[in-house]
């Protein structure tokens, strides 16, 4: 069953998928949002914070920063294994699972030195080369005078269902492909159709006395025309059967391709867990 690539950049992907049921695509879409793991700062130990931002606000800002996690997915322990970790164990580096560490450590030590200064993500020092902020120029906190900020942040793998900071995808959409429109003659006769085509020149045109769509017309154009412009009763969009456009965009921490693969893997893991449970029940 063919999957056609419409657009691809490192952080976004657009596919034309034929012959797959909507349920499968929707499962992948949801998995990209809530099941695919990525790296984000989980908790912060603040040694000194003289800035105008409270510790909690600072920790929240740090957590929102996307961290590169393409390599981390292989080298760090899965989210479920680290859920039970104790804070004190993390500080001493005891928190591991099957030889893989749970947490990566990031340090931030900045001072204003008498003038106004903004602390950027490029000031963060990471213990692991492969885990660093995706963007170098994200402002974290402003400082003035002799204010200082010194903190240690611990990042781990997590899933989007736990907190939105672990959501790799910003956009994950499955949408149908518009083929044509259907017109009920009893509700909208030829005169009504001609009126509609005149009012909505961008979307519709008249062909052999029947209302049809122009090339390049999108679903939102058709729906806008039907609902607000010509209020044509009996006009309905017709979609291509079993053909969908799948769109995915990530925040930069993972590539779009990797997100897609990891989402599919997460679904398979879930299905296997279900199968195991059922077999246990059956004896």
């Amino acid at each position: 069953m063919p999957i056609q690539m419409l657009e691809e950049t490192p952080i976004s992907i657009k596919l034309l998928v034929k012959g797959y049921p909507l349920a499968v695509l929707n499962a992948i879409r949801r998995a990209a949002l809530e099941l695919c793991p990525k790296m984000a700062i989980d908790f912060v130990i603040v040694e000194r914070n003289d800035s105008t931002l409270f510790n909690e606000v600072l920790a929240h800002r740090l957590a929102m920063i996307p961290l590169t996690s393409d390599e981390a997915l292989d080298h760090y322990a899965p989210p479920e294994a680290c859920a039970e970790c104790d804070c004190r164990k993390v500080e001493t580096g005891e928190c591991t699972y099957e030889g893989k560490p749970c947490y990566a450590t990031l340090y931030l030590d900045a001072s204003a030195d008498g003038k106004y200064k903004i602390v950027y993500t490029k000031d963060i020092i990471s213990s692991d080369e492969s885990i660093k902020p995706v963007y170098d120029n994200i402002p974290i906190v402003p400082l003035i005078g002799n204010q200082k900020v010194k903190l240690t942040a611990y990042a781990r793998l997590g899933r989007g269902r736990e907190h939105a900071k672990w959501m790799p995808a910003t956009v994950a959409v499955v949408k149908p492909v518009l083929k044509d429109i259907s017109v009920k003659e009893t509700l909208c006769n030829e005169e009504c159709q001609r009126e509609c085509a005149e009012k909505c020149k961008e979307a519709f045109t008249m062909k052999d006395g029947k209302l049809t769509i122009k090339d390049g017309t999108t679903l939102s154009m058709v729906m806008y025309c039907i609902e607000y412009v010509c209020e044509g009763k009996g006009i309905r969009p017709v979609f291509e059967e079993d053909t969908y456009i799948f769109e995915l965009e990530t925040d930069g921490s993972l590539s779009a391709r990797r997100t897609l693969k990891e989402s599919a893997r997460a679904i398979v893991q879930k299905l296997e867990a279900l199968k195991r449970k059922l077999e246990e029940k059956a004896g």
Partner: peptide, 19 residues
């Protein structure tokens, strides 16, 4: 300080703010 991400979709935006 202004938000790091878009409130609705979560796209990191603040890196463009200075420009």
């Amino acid at each position: 300080m202004i938000p790091i991400r878009c409130y609705t979709c979560g796209k990191p935006l603040i890196q463009y703010y200075d420009e």
